[in-house]
Design a protein around this nucleic acid. Sequence first.
DNA 1: ACCATCAATGACAGCGCTAACACCAAAACC
DNA 2: GGTTTTGGTGTTAGCGCTGTCATTGATGGT
Lengths: 345, 345
Amino acid sequence: MNEKPIKAKARASSTGRVTLDDIARRVGVSSITVSRAFRRPDKVADEVRERIQRVADEMGYVSNRAASSLASARSMNIVVLVPSLRNMVFVETLDGVEKVLRPKGYQMLLGVTNYSPEEEEALVRAYLAFDPDGILLTGMNYRESTRRLIEQVRVPVVHMMELSDREGVYSVGFSQEAAAEAMTEHLLAQGRRRIAFIGSQLDSRTLARNRGYRDTLMRAGLYEPRRELMVPDSSSVALGGILLERLLQQAPDTDAIFFCNDDLAQGGLFECLRKGISVPGQLAIGGFNDLPSSACTVPALTSVATPRFDIGMRSADMLLSLIDGRPVARQHIDLGVALKPRQST
Amino acid sequence: MNEKPIKAKARASSTGRVTLDDIARRVGVSSITVSRAFRRPDKVADEVRERIQRVADEMGYVSNRAASSLASARSMNIVVLVPSLRNMVFVETLDGVEKVLRPKGYQMLLGVTNYSPEEEEALVRAYLAFDPDGILLTGMNYRESTRRLIEQVRVPVVHMMELSDREGVYSVGFSQEAAAEAMTEHLLAQGRRRIAFIGSQLDSRTLARNRGYRDTLMRAGLYEPRRELMVPDSSSVALGGILLERLLQQAPDTDAIFFCNDDLAQGGLFECLRKGISVPGQLAIGGFNDLPSSACTVPALTSVATPRFDIGMRSADMLLSLIDGRPVARQHIDLGVALKPRQST
DNA sequence: ACCATCAATGACAGCGCTAACACCAAAACC
DNA sequence: GGTTTTGGTGTTAGCGCTGTCATTGATGGT
């Protein structure tokens, strides 16, 4: 009865999976040496390391992260929360994030908030249980209780897409207002004077773009509230068509529409085709984000190219710096945008 | 020196995070009772449970999954691998998966394989370290070594999207061949006789659709190799336009094109508009998957609606059954497809 | 009044791994 | 020739939690 646990161990650990100990026993070293062979190869004699590697492969060893993060302070997990995967913008942001994280051995834990601060908090709570080394959030529109939750566990956070000016907050993105201004100015420069704004989702970025639009038109003395159409529904191509129709009912003399994103704008474009409204003849149409497909529509859609891939990369870079305690040159990185004038305006 | 560890524990655990022990001490119970208060509330007296709950909230307790999965056999992690997030089809599949997994307390670990069996294997290896209770894979086109890897750790697997007929394999999807047949038959029924196929990505699903197309045309005695255009590039709207042009060069008399997915088809449609080719007058265009935006194009795109949301849900359901050792009625669930005839054909 | 049952809680061990230190022999130094 | 350094390895303890008993006191049936 006394040696039973030892015997059991001599075969395979109780759970059936191959453990460091199993390898250690087969190779004839201690388990810590096996651990080192994987994590600090330079600390183990070449000959021993190779034998360990061979045996591990033979036995199909897979390290156990739960045990590893429990024993060491670091989990090598990074939580990344985005509002939606139906919007390619965030998918491309994630690509950038992954590009930086993967080579460093970090595991990305992805969560989708559906644009809801409540869901965001629930996800943060759920993912904190994974003891993440860092967190990437989309936008700055999180709940106060979420902030406290994160503060309590002292995990570094970087905000993507929107910029902040607060001390102790880190963000990588661009000025949504300035980007919207650029589009509005462009429409003005094209001679448009009755410029509408159509927005949906009404997240903080949409609202910021609306402010940029409104401020620009006010400065030009051309702002008219009836040309603003904002609905809380989630964006889609189909919705773009519906909203265009609705807007033209409430303001038929509109000569340009700035859609808050390309999905809506494409839907608007299609609806014009269907209705026989000439674009840009009768109506100029501008979008936002410059989705890959926006250059392909007929007419090609004018849009504002946003650097989401770079935002993903730079955010991840910054987060890793914070995690490693390296100094961060700037707390807020503005990556700017680029207007893409095309046939639709 | 002897009581130091006890003192240290009396304040907060060494890592600074709040642990079950911290709560237990504050409430005056043992840590196992606190554990039970969360995991089996019925096993703890109401009054005690409420006190525990209150203290936990006050202290900002977040359970540690690493410790939990180490101690219990179950990690409550489910690995889900999809080829891409740029294709809405998989995003909607994930929605279905999440809808089932989340309420049961499972955490989804998402990986993107970029259509590469090698990357898939690397992801499986990385995620096995999370000791998952189950795995959802997209398609059946995995490497033999990946299969062995999974078999070794005895984790149940369900394959999404494609169907298998093998024993001991579980799958939820639809027959890609039959779906492609349906579209091809539809084009034939519309009187088309010179039907082309355009495919990209060349993953196993695209190839299966191509087989369905080819078989149908062969049966009708109308198959012509020069009307097939298959390229390995990844699908996009832009590529659809390029491939349409290329196809019309090599087979100008084509009177219908079956695109292997809606992204390509939309690009093809736009290219026709640009070139002044009338659709469906000169050329009928059919897509695959029925993306939400496909009903909005001008003309609206004929497509094959695939039940990816349901596939996600049913796959997750089946996986949970396997995990819990519940009997599974059928190892392979065919959810079928629905042809959506619209103006483009 | 007796034993069986049950609800509520606790003691203990251990999941698989790694940090911190200890150890030893060989190499390098003065 | 003795001391220090170095490279390679092992010992020990513990990360935070939960499975498996054991324990206690109350309840119920006869």
